[in-house]
Nucleic acid binder design. Structure first.
Lengths: 93, 93
DNA sequence: CTGAAGCTTTGACATGTGTCTATATTGACA
DNA sequence: TGTCAATATAGACACATGTCAAAGCTTCAG
C-alpha cells in the first residue's frame, strides 16, 4: 500500500462529522483517553457510535482497551507525529 | 454549518488517494500552483481528474484561475493556517 | 472562421458508506 | 446461575461516491 493510500485512510476517517467529533472528544479528554460512555453523545445511536469508533481504530487513529465493563479509547501515540510530518512538507515548499 | 462539519469536509476531500496526490502535487509545485496538465498523471482519466479538482475546490483547499488555454490550481492561502490550528488543540491537551 | 488543444460537464453504473433495529457478547454482581 | 449494564456485531436500506465514455466549452493559431 502506497503512502498516499495510507494517509488518505486517515483523512477519510476524519472526514465524517460524527467521527471527527468522537476523535476530538477522545483527544481532549485527560490522558487522551475516554470511555465510550463519556463520548457517546454525538447525535447518533449507540451501534452507530460503535461502528465509527471501529473505523477510527482501523484507520490507526485510536486504540482501545477493555477495563471491566467499560471500553476505553485512546489516541494512537503516533498520530500527531504522522500528521505533523504531513504538514511540514507543503509548508516548506 | 458547525465547525465539525466544515472541518470534516476538508478531511473528506483529502480522504481519497487520487485527491491527496493531486493536492500534494499542487502544493509541491513552485508558488504552490500548477496547471492541470502538470498534475493530471495520477492514474485516472482526465475527466476524473477534473472531477476531483472540483471537489478540492469546493472543500476550500484549492482555488483555480484560467490563464489562456490553461487552468491553474493553487493551494488556498488559508489552508495551512486552518490545519495548523487543528493540530495545536490536541497537541496541547 | 475553422480546427485543435486543454478542461469541464453530463449521464450512467457499480460500489461504498452512514444509519438504524435487532441480536449477540462480555463482565460485574446478587 | 441469572440478570443487568456496557459495547459490539449482523443485516438491511437509502444515499453518496468514484469512475469512465461521450459531448460541450474556451481559447488560441492559422
Amino acid at each position: 500500500m502506497e503512502e498516499a493510500e495510507v494517509t488518505a485512510v486517515m483523512f477519510k476517517a476524519l472526514g465524517d462529522p460524527v467521527r471527527l467529533r468522537l476523535f476530538s472528544k477522545v483527544a481532549s479528554h485527560p490522558d487522551n483517553e475516554a470511555c465510550v460512555c463519556d463520548i457517546a453523545d454525538v447525535g447518533v445511536s449507540q451501534p452507530t457510535v460503535s461502528h465509527h469508533l471501529k473505523k477510527l481504530k482501523e484507520a490507526g487513529l485510536l486504540v482501545s482497551e477493555r477495563r471491566g465493563t467499560w471500553v476505553y479509547y485512546r489516541v494512537d501515540p503516533g498520530v500527531l507525529a504522522a500528521m505533523g510530518k504531513l504538514l511540514t512538507v507543503p509548508a516548506a515548499a
